Simulated assay, not measured.
Amino acid sequence: MISASDRKEVITLIQEAVATGAREAAACKELGLTQRTLQRWRKQGGSEDGRPHATRPAPANKLSEAEEQQVLNILQKPQNRSLPPSQIVPALADEGIYIASESSFYRIMHKHNQQHHRGRSKKRTARPLTSHAATGPNEVWMWDITWRTPS
């Protein structure tokens, strides 16, 4: 986001360019702005961007704390401890239970720091790529043993 002082400076620079004979569209393009942005900044008087300080209402379909706790309780049941949400949600749907979507399960797990390895199997480990790169002649040899019948 651009600070209020930078906005004012851009407005004065463009005004100077227009006063010396440049077209406003060309001056804006040179600075990487659209004319519409410049018009909006002039209308606001070069004031600070209000987006970071805006109060936004909560979504109407946001899960309540009780519903989040219900999801956490389901995730912590012994039969679900080693399963990912991609398996838990369909299993609940088979029972006729719907609490939240799979992505909501993941979002709640992440919020409560439970988004980690859940299975009984070992964690995945990072392994170096096994690629063969030749840096000189006769370092990497490949062959093809394709059986072809004579036609």
Rank of each mutant, 00 (worst) to 15 (best):
M1L: 05
I2S: 10
S3I: 03
S3A: 12
A4N: 06
A4S: 11
R7N: 02
E9N: 02
I11V: 04
I14D: 07
Q15A: 12
Q15K: 05
Q15H: 00
E16H: 06
E16T: 04
E16V: 01
E16C: 01
V18E: 08
A19T: 10
T20P: 00
G21K: 01
R23T: 11
E24N: 02
A25R: 12
A26W: 04
A26E: 14
A26C: 07
A27W: 05
C28A: 03
K29F: 06
K29D: 07
E30K: 04
L31M: 07
L31C: 01
R36L: 08
R36G: 10
R36C: 05
T37W: 13
L38H: 08
Q39L: 10
R40W: 01
R42I: 01
K43P: 02
K43N: 08
S47N: 14
S47K: 14
S47I: 13
E48K: 09
D49N: 12
D49E: 02
P52T: 12
P52K: 13
H53L: 08
A54V: 00
T55N: 14
R56A: 12
A58D: 11
P59C: 07
A60Y: 08
A60R: 14
N61M: 09
K62C: 14
K62S: 15
E65V: 03
E65Q: 09
A66I: 01
E68G: 05
E68W: 02
Q69S: 07
Q69E: 09
N73E: 15
I74V: 08
Q76F: 07
K77P: 02
P78M: 09
Q79G: 07
N80K: 04
N80Q: 02
L83H: 13
S86D: 14
Q87L: 15
I88R: 06
V89E: 14
V89L: 13
P90C: 00
L92R: 05
L92V: 04
E95G: 06
G96N: 03
A100P: 08
A100L: 06
S103F: 12
S104M: 12
S104T: 14
Y106H: 06
R107Q: 12
I108H: 07
I108D: 10
H110P: 02
K111N: 13
H112M: 08
N113Y: 05
N113G: 05
Q114V: 00
Q115T: 08
H116D: 08
H117T: 00
H117F: 10
R118N: 11
G119P: 06
G119C: 12
R120T: 03
R120H: 05
K122W: 14
K123A: 15
R124S: 15
A126P: 10
A126T: 15
A126N: 15
R127I: 07
A134L: 05
A134Y: 02
T135W: 03
T135H: 06
N138H: 03
E139I: 09
E139R: 09
V140H: 06
V140Y: 07
M142N: 10
M142Y: 12
W143D: 11
D144A: 00
D144K: 01
D144T: 01
T149G: 13
T149M: 12
P150K: 10
P150A: 13
S151Y: 13
